[in-house]
Design a protein around this nucleic acid. Structure first.
Lengths: 323, 323
DNA sequence: TCACGGGCTGCAACCGGTTGCATGAAACAT
DNA sequence: ATGTTTCATGCAACCGGTTGCAGCCCGTGA
């Protein structure tokens, strides 16, 4: 079918090794020969077989990208950025969705191992122990999770939480509810730690909750009962569900209660009210994760830690406390 | 590093071919030997190298999935469904984003060719000619585009457009604007054809437009100038941008103008107004695309055509025409 | 007892590339 | 003229598997 290196060699009257070098080490071959080989290759539509090349070089030029849920709007910008960045470096990306299941995640990593140079783990659900064990087989970069001795990219959600709470206290709110996320979530823990450490805030912690609109809907009654006038939600989906739940109970946002989300997944337009939220640098995280991974593939011992800044985007779901 | 088939052979005292058969043709090896080999393999943590296997068998057990824009909310559910379905069949998925650029798309297909058993082309921007040419190298399944002699999955957006327009005429609207999409888009063409063929509708076609919120924003003035009271937008993003643009100019939805989107990407909650839209069976399309692809890899000549039904979801962005 | 056939395993070539080493020719220095 | 580099290329082993073919052992039927 497709032309192989031997076809090109035969057609251009040189040995296969010369053809090979023409593509992978051009400076080693005489310009004249090289041009002839290239012409023949072009003519035959030859393209080096990356999989075959990987067999000898040990470099596949592929990376794996594993996320909990592709359809969660938080991830696509990260996936897109990582993929684009990888392509610019001549890497292809396997994308896999674990459906929030640690077992699936582990199996995925194992079957992917031989086909990739490294794996990006985004908000993994696996235990740290499991991650460290699997790390023996393939380089990792972990996003949004702290794992000892592994290249890690964090988004400083603690800082974002502080900004959000300061924003609300600045508007006169004293009693603030933190609607936390799933119990295993690193992000949720960070938000909680940051909120707890703040002075002059009357904090109520509600949860754990599912990281979905349903989770937000379900916690609305508790929020009202808590007497809080300001709420920081685990993420935008929860915030949206919560606002909906509050409306259903006659509590209006931002008139009666202010709500801040996290992630900035809703493009901002067309919401009622437009959501004040902590924006996460997901695209930057995707790019940096790829960089870190490719770099750590080179020299094995690079347990870098990068922390990316978050910022508060003030829109319409927060307002001054009612007197 | 990792154990190879030869390590297992040596450790269990058999020839590599026996180990190979233990994994790829178990019935050919004596149960006793097989168990011994399996035990040793387990012990050494051996896993067959899929890339190496692919070299001889010609089957990589990978597929490529190419979309115009991962971050466009239309695609993630399709990607997720396709990936899950593929994994269940022991296939991995390369996901690639072309950034709406035909050239990138072509290059991507070419570099992916040798590493996959087939490629899913979702809403490709490439010309039919180019697709047919590339098809010589690798099996395709095309989603949301009609290409002669190729397995194809279509979502019946023409039907959806008719439903949307009937819905609006039923509410008393006579003059309807069709805000079309990019010029190369099959979907846009289908919508246009369906709309043009309808009787008793005073149709205005506006566009082409970018398939984004910006595209919708930019076309708002034209919509107002057209005098239409009902609008069918190329997709939800355009609809959202358009509604925003109309508001900015003092035109209210649905009071002054009714707007219908396509795709049903906004979860429905928390929009002002909640968008009436044509829902697309994206997850089903993803699954079916994988099935078709794996099937067409087996026997080469299967130019199946599957058409999936769309439906109208009526929410709040459409209302009776004002007297 | 022997021919035959089936079950199991080993041998070796092969998939499409890469790469260390050897070889030969040309260019340079002495 | 000779010895030493340098440059370009060929040779062959190798990466980690698969697979057609041959050979061995054993049981069966004649």
């Amino acid at each position: 079918m497709a032309a192989t290196i031997r076809d090109v060699a035969q057609a251009s009257g040189v040995h296969v090794s010369t053809v090979s070098r023409t593509f992978s080490a051009p400076h080693l071959v005489n310009p004249e020969t090289r041009n002839r080989v290239l012409a023949v290759a072009e003519d035959l539509g030859y393209r080096p077989n990356r999989a075959a090349r990987a067999l000898t070089t040990g470099r596949t030029h592929n990376i794996g990208l594993i996320v909990a849920d592709i359809a969660n709007p938080f991830f696509p910008p990260l996936i897109k950025a990582a993929q684009a960045h990888a392509r610019a470096r001549d890497y292809h990306v396997f994308v896999a969705d674990t459906d929030e299941d640690p077992q699936v995640e582990e199996e995925l990593i194992q079957t992917l191992t031989k086909q990739v140079d490294g794996v990006l783990l985004c908000s993994p659900r696996l235990s740290n122990r499991a991650i460290e064990r699997l790390h023996a087989d393939v380089p990792f970069v972990v996003v949004n999770r702290r794992v000892k001795g592994m290249p890690t990219i964090l988004m400083d959600v603690g800082h974002g939480a502080r900004l959000a709470i300061e924003h609300m206290t600045g508007l006169g709110h004293r009693r603030i509810a933190l609607v936390s996320g799933p119990s295993g979530s690193w992000t949720s823990g960070e938000m909680r730690a940051a909120a707890t450490a703040m002075e002059g805030v009357d904090l109520v912690i509600l949860g754990p909750n599912a990281p979905t609109e349903q989770g937000g809907l379900a916690v609305a009654a508790d929020v009202i009962a808590s007497g809080a006038t300001g709420v920081l939600a685990y993420n935008d989906l929860v915030a949206i569900g919560l606002i909906e739940g509050l409306y259903e109970r006659g509590v209006r946002v931002p008139d009666d209660v202010s709500v801040v989300g996290v992630d900035d997944i809703v493009s901002g337009r067309l919401n009622r009210p437009k959501l004040t939220t902590v924006a996460m640098p997901t695209a930057a995280a995707g790019r940096m994760a790829v960089d870190l991974l490719l770099q750590s593939v080179g020299d094995s011992a690079t347990p870098t830690l990068a922390t990316l800044e978050t910022s508060l985007v003030v829109r319409e779901s927060t307002g001054e406390v009612r007197q």
